[in-house]
Design a protein around this nucleic acid. Structure first.
Length: 418
RNA sequence: GUGGGCGUAGCUCAGCUGGUAGAGCACUCGGUUGUGGUCCGAGAUGUCGCGGGUUCGAGCCCCGUCGUUCACCCCA
């Protein structure tokens, strides 16, 4: 009886060695600027009560209406695998009263998210994001800082071929004035049924349509940026000024559309140029009403989510991965059974100094062990036999050029960490 | 959810108008005594995604299904 193999669920992205090293590096680089800015970790559940998303993200969004993994748990509760991060953060902040302390609350998160979409290049049903949220301040300097943190994450990866697009969705008054005019503009267009239905749900969506006929029809549509209230406009100007001061390049895209309903005010997206259809590597914005809608106080917040999977694809496309740093410093080969104990101790000692050391296992011939050393990509190889143990002197082999370097065992740490 | 491409050894693929499966790379061992990357030799490897159909005969044709990939849509 032979069992069938079980496959991973459709559309999930797994990271296995050696690629996982690059993935971990990318995730680390993306989030480190937030840590440097005093954001603190929030470790959250990957599933939440369904109502959190239908209420927080918005019933009319595609994400909620057709892309959520929703199921009933054994207690008859409706549960949903999180499709995004902000709603969960807000829920936790409210539930634990973090907003009763000093403001803004500044947190970061990292983990997997789930959307039941058709998989595609850069689009997976389980995907990874890192993100931050800053809650309880509407200072435009905070908007600029949040954008700068995201931008620094991409710079840490060495990325260049991306652009930052920003716009402002204004406050409630700005949006309702614009919406009235936009709806009447769209009403005069001759649209097919499904497009009209989309427009009825959220007229802004038509700005995002890729079809030429829609693009040209929308060419003269009223833009939200022209409807901003004085407060919103001044706020947006301030954010742009700060970005200029920071030397962060951006383009204002008044037709930007975000897929989540809670965004207000400053809104932004990072778009990479070498990625194909799924080119958004990160995005975010301000959300004024979200906390209140979720039963908390009426505090404003701003945050972003960065796609780790896509950032990795971008780093591969731009060839910026520091591949050399993904391998060990030393590959240690004990000569014969009797030297294994000595090798284990030596490896352990070196590791305590932060040196990455791999050991040769099994009883392969020295030649085979050297081959293994070569394939591991380690910078140095070292054979230890009785001679070395007794004399305290070893021949360290530099793998890049094959040179043997005589070193005292006591000085290995120094040589290897340089 | 809609549409197109693809599914043959671990990987990349070849397999002519249907006649019972191959290459390169990788892998293991060896080319005698303690140092890899080159070279040479030897070896292991597949229910040709799965199910059904047509046929004397199917990896090659047909249908279905699953997976994968790209695009629409949507977004990270």
């Amino acid at each position: 009886m032979k069992y069938e193999k079980i496959q991973a669920p459709k559309g999930v992205r797994e990271y296995l060695p050696p690629e996982s090293q690059a993935f971990e590096w990318v995730r680390q680089q993306l989030i480190s600027p937030a840590k440097l800015a005093g954001y603190q970790l929030m470790e959250l559940p990957v599933f939440e009560e369904t109502g959190l998303f239908s209420r927080g993200v918005g019933e009319s969004t595609d994400v909620v209406s057709k892309e959520m993994y929703t199921f009933e748990d054994r207690g008859g509760r409706s549960i949903t695998l999180r499709p995004e991060g902000t709603a969960g953060v807000m829920r936790a902040v409210i539930e634990s009263n973090l907003d009763r302390g000093q403001l803004p609350v500044k947190v970061w998160y990292s983990g997997q998210f789930f959307r039941a979409e058709r998989p595609q290049a850069g689009r997976y049903r389980q995907f990874y994001q890192v993100g931050i949220e800053a809650i309880g301040s509407d200072d435009p300097a905070l908007d600029a800082e949040v954008i700068a943190i995201a931008d620094q994450g991409f710079k840490n990866l060495g990325l260049k071929n991306y652009r930052l697009e920003i716009t402002s969705l204004g406050d409630a008054d700005s949006r309702s004035a614009h919406r009235t005019d936009l709806v009447s503009f769209i009403g005069k267009l001759d649209l097919d049924e499904s497009t009209a239905a989309r427009a009825a749900l959220n007229p802004l969506r038509l700005f995002d349509d890729k079809r030429d006929e829609i693009k040209s029809a929308m060419k003269d549509a009223p833009l939200l940026l022209d409807y901003l209230s004085d407060y919103s406009r001044e706020n947006f100007e301030a954010v742009k000024d700060y970005l200029d001061d920071l030397g962060i390049a951006y383009v204002v895209n008044p037709r930007m559309v975000r897929g989540l309903d809670y965004y207000t005010g400053t809104t932004f997206e990072f778009v990479h140029e070498d990625l194909g259809a799924q080119s958004g590597i990160g995005g975010g914005g301000r959300y004024d009403g979200l906390m209140e809608v979720l039963g908390g106080q009426a505090l404003s917040g701003i945050g972003f989510g960065l796609g780790v999977d896509r950032a990795l694809l971008a780093a591969i496309a731009e060839n910026t991965l520091p591949v050399a740093s993904f391998t060990s410093d030393l590959f240690l080969i004990p000569l014969g059974e009797s030297m294994k104990g000595f090798a284990l101790s030596l490896a352990s000692e070196l590791r305590q100094s932060g040196i990455t050391v791999e050991l040769a296992f099994g009883d392969r011939a020295l030649k085979g062990a050297m081959k293994a050393a070569d394939k591991s990509g380690a910078r140095y190889a070292l054979v230890v036999g009785e001679n070395e143990r007794d004399s305290g002197l070893v021949e360290l082999k530099r793998m890049s050029d094959g040179q043997l370097i005589s070193v005292k065992i006591s000085e290995l740490k120094t040589v290897l960490s340089s």
